[in-house]
Design a protein around this nucleic acid. Structure first.
Lengths: 196, 196
DNA sequence: ACTAATAGGGACGGCGCTGTCACTTACAGT
DNA sequence: ACTGTAAGTGACAGCGCCGTCCCTATTAGT
């Protein structure tokens, strides 16, 4: 899970060095030794009574205090508007729900911070549809297929391709190709894309 | 984060189809439609009061009830020996801490289930060392380097290579090569591997 | 009948990771 | 002097992903 976050960061910031810690103490040790430019933290993980809102605040406050120059980004699973506001007051630059963090979206979050000074991404209240992942599909194929399945609401495929293309920085035609390949593979292996 | 788990599963079980749900309701819908062979769930995520141990139990009990034939695996961040035992009584096949779940370790977990009927992986009480990830390193390189940095305790490098080789199903010489390449890259980009 | 969108594929260059094999150098103990 | 262990490099085949370009049908709208 940590590695997944690291890779998100690395995708957003090429040629960066990331240090990771599995608990708060290790993180504090690291911060004492290294001047970080950015700190990404999940206050729900360290384990000091997972449910305690106070402890969560304290974790963030501690990190802020130890390394006030860094951009602090909170990525958590138990998100709430209220906590987001509180963290913002502490100086946190972003408050992102794990449920809201999509692949390759870290870059957009950083852009938003640069523009507005703050980025908040709570979980979608209306609940996302289920996702299907087939082992035979490559990363791009899965991504495109997922996006396509999540937008059946009368929107033209063309438009979806263009959206995807913009989000991934590729050609709309390529996005289309990915979708077609994904569908072909699913058909070949006996799992029609309409299933679910 | 969900995707990371999906990929872990896909690495352990080639040619599988994975359905993912961002919340409990979606999961229940899916289970009603599809006969799953395996269900991986984090009871801390759905959001019904994250800290409530009762709700966590209820989530697992619900899934067990709806799909008793599946192998149920609990992957959670707020792990405890006690909760592990409780879940085991409910029929869960594995109780794994997110902090303990290492890349490509899902296969080993499944093996253990096949052998002992249960697998438990709690967070290491002694706390892991910090990890360093350099964007220029490939996956294997990072993995090998991390493992090497985590075992400075007088163990011969040869032995570490062999351990790695066994874990990754590759040649010990290849593991050695990965370590060397990783180190070379770090030196080249100005970050000596001894830093941290 | 013409046009635009949707659908299904074939082929290809580039690129990076993976996993090997092979070669050189240095330092240690015996 | 000899041998085992380590470090540091070079080269290479295989493979899959990525992103394109191009080519066909079919269907629907005008």
């Amino acid at each position: 899970m940590r590695l997944a976050l690291v890779q998100e960061v690395q995708t957003a910031i090429p040629d960066c060095v990331v240090h990771a810690a599995s608990n708060l103490e290790t993180a504090v040790d690291l911060i004492a030794k290294i001047a970080f430019e950015m700190i990404v933290v999940d206050p729900g993980l360290p384990g000091h009574e997972p449910g305690s809102a106070k402890d969560r605040l304290k974790v963030i406050a501690t990190l802020q205090e130890l390394c006030p120059t860094a951009i602090h980004i909170v990525v958590t699973s138990a998100d709430s508007q209220k906590e987001g506001e509180e963290f913002r007051k502490l100086g946190v630059a972003a408050y992102i729900s794990k449920n809201h963090l999509r692949p390759r979206s870290m870059g957009a979050i950083l852009d938003e911070i640069a523009e507005n000074g703050f980025s908040i991404g709570l979980v979608h209240p209306l609940g996302m549809k289920s996702e299907i992942y087939h082992a035979a599909l490559s990363g791009r194929e899965q991504e495109v297929l997922a996006s396509m399945l999540q937008t059946p609401s009368g929107i033209s495929r063309r438009q979806v391709y263009e959206q995807l293309a913009e989000r991934m920085n590729i050609d709309p035609a390529s996005a289309e190709r990915y979708y077609k390949r994904a569908k072909a593979k699913l058909l070949k292996y006996g799992h029609p894309p309409t299933a679910i």
